[in-house]
Write a protein that binds this DNA or RNA. Structure first.
Lengths: 205, 205
DNA sequence: TAGATTGTTAATCGATTAACAATC
DNA sequence: TAGATTGTTAATCGATTAACAATC
């Protein structure tokens, strides 16, 4: 079916387009153009049109794009026209902040469980969740059919946690531990490490 | 002096090389090769050699790279052979987690202040810091000559905070609020938005 | 109709890879 | 010396941009 392979770099820009469109909607706007969107994001108008044209024709010549319609189309492409249940492994500062984060709402995700291996933390409350024993993670993730996970454990434990998650059926992992993970090719991993971003900027200072 | 302009995409990979090298050092290793480094990072050996060659000759034919020496060279290139003072604006869950984060140590950064505008939060303790009134941010940032900042305030306030930071002399901003910031061209901005990373993965599920 | 903006093609630009001489 | 690996060049590959016909 999906004959054409879309470059990963194009897929990676769609969430940015979607975020900007949702913001425009909040501002009460109805119509935008590739030029305006590009200015907001620091991306050329031609690139935005080219990216979108990979998936279909969403605009009207002379008019531009219906913000609401284009956002809905991108949501479908990214499969965030539904809500994905997400588990958080590691109930330290970062894991707790993520579990309480309000920013997932309306963007396709919902944290449903948080795990830790520290007996001191198991049973305690983090936002609306009770921290569960990581020993039960495999069972509970399987049962719920959860495919998206976030890792916020110390670096030394991250690879072992990733292995467990893959075993339990996770297919998308967002890793906050500052190291590269080895996972099977069918499992997707993304990384968040603030130091990487900071070091990228100090080069220019 | 710096005649040659290094592509931004190359600069962006150096922190990943550095992180992997520091990990190897912790493992007690002394020597590595472009091939080994590449395997760890999922990057081709040729690309690593090409990237490094933009800055100098750091290896030995037949032998590879001294991990310690290469790490030190990359630290110098990225200007993280020193410690940058960083301020955090916003003492919510994310800002607090960032202010307490142990992962900055030995990687070139140190959080030195955290600010908020909420009277309930000002004066309270976050890790080793007392939350300061954001009204004093400009003065204190200027005084300390701080050039690196992190924004962890609600989206609605992020642009105003960014404007204040730029005004106070910030030149590198790491923004956790889920929106694009407008800053003058000489100011560098990087973004962390977990939803962007997650949406990039659900496309493939 | 005149003006604006899309979707798409072709041209340009830049990044990655393959290959190998140099050399440790 | 033989084997290994760098640094670099040239070839390949892929992404971005410019331009414009189509058309709202």
């Amino acid at each position: 079916m999906d004959q054409k392979v879309i470059p990963d770099i194009v897929v990676g820009r769609l969430p940015l387009y979607l975020r900007a469109l949702q913001r425009m909607l909040e501002e009460g706007r109805y119509i935008t153009s590739s030029q305006e969107l590009g200015e907001r994001l620091g991306i050329s108008a031609a690139q935005i049109r080219k990216d979108l044209s990979q998936f279909g024709e969403f605009g009207k010549q002379g008019t531009g794009y219906s913000i609401d319609y284009l956002a809905e189309q991108i949501r479908q492409i990214l499969k965030v026209d539904r809500v994905w249940d997400v588990v958080v492994i590691g109930a330290g500062d970062i894991g707790s902040a993520v579990a309480r984060y309000q920013g997932f709402a309306n963007r396709g995700f919902r944290v449903v469980m948080i795990f830790d291996n520290d007996p001191e933390k198991i049973g305690t409350q983090v936002g609306q969740f009770t921290v569960q024993d990581i020993a039960r993670a495999d069972e509970l993730i399987r049962e719920a059919g959860i495919r998206v996970a976030m890792i916020s454990v110390p670096s030394a434990e991250a690879q072992a946690v990733a292995d467990q998650l893959v075993d339990a059926g996770a297919q998308a992992i967002l890793n906050y531990a500052p190291l590269s993970l080895n996972v099977p090719p069918e499992v997707h991993v993304q990384y968040i490490d603030p130091v990487i971003h900071l070091q990228r900027m100090t080069y220019y200072l």
